[in-house]
Amino acid sequence: VLLPMERTRLTGSGYAGSVVVQGRHCVVELAYGELVDQVDWGLEGLQVQVTGTASISANSPKAVLTAKFTNFTAGYGCTDGARTCQVVWFLNGKLLGGSSSFTLREGATATCTKTFDRAQRPEQDPVFTVVLTCGGETVRAQYTVKVDRERWDYETALETVQGVNIEAEVLRRTPLYGDRSMSYILQYLPQGTALTHLYYSQDPGAPGQVRLADGTVGWVNWDDYLVSRTDYTQGEDYSTATKEGFVNQKGYSSPTGYLLWISLKTQRVNIFQGSKGNWKLIRSSPCSTGTNLTPTVTGVFSVIYKTYRWRFSDTIDGQYIDDYYRVYHITGFWGGQAFHSRPYRSSDESLLDGTMGTPSSHGCVRMYDEDCSYIYDEIPYDTTVVVF
């Protein structure tokens, strides 16, 4: 008697010399002389569990996963308790790879390794799927690897944070001087030489400070080069983890327990508290730094003076006004460059220029009243100020 169908029940009062069982879960109640088991259990009851890397970050971008197959029944069609199957791995639904000659036996394992690009943090947690196929049957399991986003941002901060290089071009052959007073010449620059504009004081007859492509820094007559008007800023701010990663990995220190970083790229003033290698962001505010013509100087400085108010004169419609506008809560960090409020008309204290988040000053760092007053009131003298 041949039982080829699943769940067949063989019963009765007769006798079978030989019963060949091929269908799964058959029941033989009839008396027989020989029972031949030819049941191919395939993948029935097979269980798969995936274990491996719990989370990834920029410095630990490799995910290693292992699928373990248990509760395997080695029936008809197996050789030495095993059968050949196909195992395939997918990442977020896209094929990663696999094997068409995977040996399946009790406790067999299949491994998948994926190394992510540290320059491209995954936006979503990666979902891995393992699929085992054999004789038209399939089992599968999924495993999600967590992306440690804060750690990733922290670890890639030095690659993420960008400075601002203001492009300029020499208009006519001109000397590159070695000092601001133009007392000696380093070399002559031909027309068309590419420059990076660093600083201009706006003083009559003063040269501009520039940097050449080879890193040489010098001074050029202001009328002999043209500064680009390109907007080099970006609207999207850095994450807290990126900010903390930047100042900590750069190794900045400060004698006061506070550290200030002016980001020219994002137009933000970031205030940290802590110590070298362990700075924590406590406040971040929008600002407006110097324009391309009169940029805020870059470098590492410190708080050197404070004063409540500055008065400025100007000529409006041909008329000189001695006290035209004022700024408040001034905290200086280099020469005449300082944190302060937006400008207000002296006549009625109305806002003269409300620009925020876009370079608009003569080099100072304009801030909302509550933000510049916080620095004025709370940040001690000698606090390190980073401009980058």
Rank of each mutant, 00 (worst) to 15 (best):
V161L: 12
G318A: 08
Q273G: 07
C134W: 09
G299D: 06
L10A: 10
D80Y: 14
D323I: 05
L104D: 11
G52N: 08
E6C: 03
H340S: 04
E159R: 14
G274Q: 07
Y376S: 06
R83H: 04
V297K: 12
E137C: 04
G42F: 08
Q86W: 10
Y320L: 06
Y32V: 00
R105H: 15
R140N: 13
G75P: 00
P286D: 08
F301R: 04
S239L: 06
Q273W: 04
T66L: 03
M356K: 10
E236Y: 03
G17I: 06
V170T: 06
P175S: 14
I321E: 12
G45I: 12
V19H: 02
E244M: 11
L96E: 12
L260N: 00
N165I: 08
V217S: 03
Q120I: 05
L2P: 07
Y324H: 14
R9A: 11
D224S: 12
V147K: 09
V387Y: 05
Y308M: 09
W89F: 06
P190G: 07
D224R: 10
T70H: 01
F72S: 02
G354L: 12
A338R: 01
S284E: 14
F301N: 03
T113I: 12
G257W: 09
G235R: 13
M5T: 05
D348V: 07
Y374W: 15
D231R: 14
N165C: 13
I185A: 02
P61D: 10
T66Q: 08
K62D: 10
Y76D: 06
P61N: 13
G277C: 05
S101P: 00
K265N: 04
V386E: 01
E150N: 14
V170N: 00
F339W: 01
E29T: 10
G335A: 02
V170P: 01
G245S: 05
R342S: 03
D317N: 14
G274N: 08
M182P: 06
T315I: 13
G75W: 07
N270Y: 00
K306G: 01
L35D: 02
T294K: 02
Y238P: 01
D125P: 00
G257F: 09
T111H: 11
C287P: 07
P343D: 05
D322A: 11
T73M: 13
A67Q: 00
F116R: 08
P295M: 05
G23C: 06
L104G: 09
T109F: 14
